[in-house]
Design a protein around this nucleic acid. Structure first.
Length: 291
DNA sequence: AAGACGTGGAG
DNA sequence: TCTCCAAGTCT
């Protein structure tokens, strides 16, 4: 049926060990799945759970969100991080209403065309919401493939062509099986084949894992540089936006000036937020979330 | 095609 | 405390 050597073991493992996440339930709408995928970008499941519930309760369909100003999406996003995702979700909702009659599109190209929807998210929604046959290549899958197939501890910094080709070569032929296999290998990376301390004893494909068989050699190459945060523009942007989020209406410039004492950096961060459409400078000199 | 882009929990 | 990292995307 396919050349995937551990499909059966992986599927069985998933059957027995998958988390009961709300966006995986059979009654989850395509919209709710899209929302979950955007929220989960670079953000842990535990923090997404409550945000996802609140979001869907307020905006059960794309049209509900599209009917509100983008600033409300940013406010609702709260402290999930990367607030441009809220803007993208709002813009996606508008596009879905305008171009797709209010229904989340089902094909990869249509999904990929939505703002904030890249290769991973388009494949994930097409697969998880619509049962399409697409290779899922997120950080979990990339790590599993790096270990099981390539025999190294960590995947390359950025996704490569060969990783995509490997993932596609492993895809079960049947679309429904492929969709299930996609979540399964992702779940394996999230629960067992983790970044720091993989639980190889619990791994259904341990006997075929190239990295384990090689004695789990440590990562070879330059250290994976951690992202700095303290003192960066990102931190300033975060503080600036928090003031606007926590305020009912427009705020005077003084309130923004108070969050950071270095004026050059502060102005640069504010200008960038305005350029990104996350902050709306008003004629009276005050600032607000976009209306 | 490196680097920017938030936030908070775990070890 | 400090580093790492969590279902990426965009420029």
């Amino acid at each position: 049926m396919n050349q995937n050597p551990y499909s059966t073991a992986l599927l069985a493992w998933y059957q027995a060990n998958a988390r009961d996440l709300p966006w995986r339930r059979s009654d989850a709408s395509a919209w709710s799945i899209l929302v979950s995928e955007i929220m989960l970008q670079q953000t842990p499941v535990a923090r997404v759970l409550p945000a996802w519930e609140a979001w869907l309760q307020r905006w059960p369909a794309p049209a509900d969100l599209a009917a509100e100003p983008p600033g409300e999406a940013v406010r609702m996003w709260n402290r999930l991080g990367y607030p441009r995702r809220a803007l993208n979700l709002h813009a996606s909702a508008c596009a879905i209403v305008e171009r797709h009659g209010g229904e989340v599109p089902s094909t990869y190209p249509e999904l990929r065309a939505l703002p904030g929807v890249g290769a991973y998210t388009a494949a994930a929604v097409a697969s998880f919401a619509f049962g399409g046959r697409h290779a899922i290549l997120d950080t979990n899958v990339r790590r599993v493939l790096a270990r099981a197939h390539t025999g190294v501890q960590y995947p390359p910094k950025a996704p490569t062509r060969s990783e995509t080709e490997l993932a596609e070569s492993l895809l079960p032929a049947d679309a429904a099986v492929a969709a299930r296999w996609g979540v399964a290998i992702m779940e394996l990376g999230a629960l067992v084949c983790t970044a720091r301390s993989p639980a190889c004893a619990d791994c259904p494909i341990a006997s075929q894992c190239a990295w384990r068989l090689a004695g789990k050699p440590a990562h070879d190459g330059p250290p994976r540089r951690a992202q700095t945060y303290a003192g960066t523009d990102r931190q300033v942007r975060g503080r600036l936006l928090a003031v606007l989020r926590d305020s009912e209406g427009p705020v005077p410039k003084d309130a923004l000036d108070a969050v950071w004492n270095e004026p050059i950096q502060r102005e640069r961060a504010l200008d960038a937020l305005v350029a990104d459409g996350l902050v709306d400078p008003r004629e009276d000199g005050t600032y607000a979330l976009p209306g």
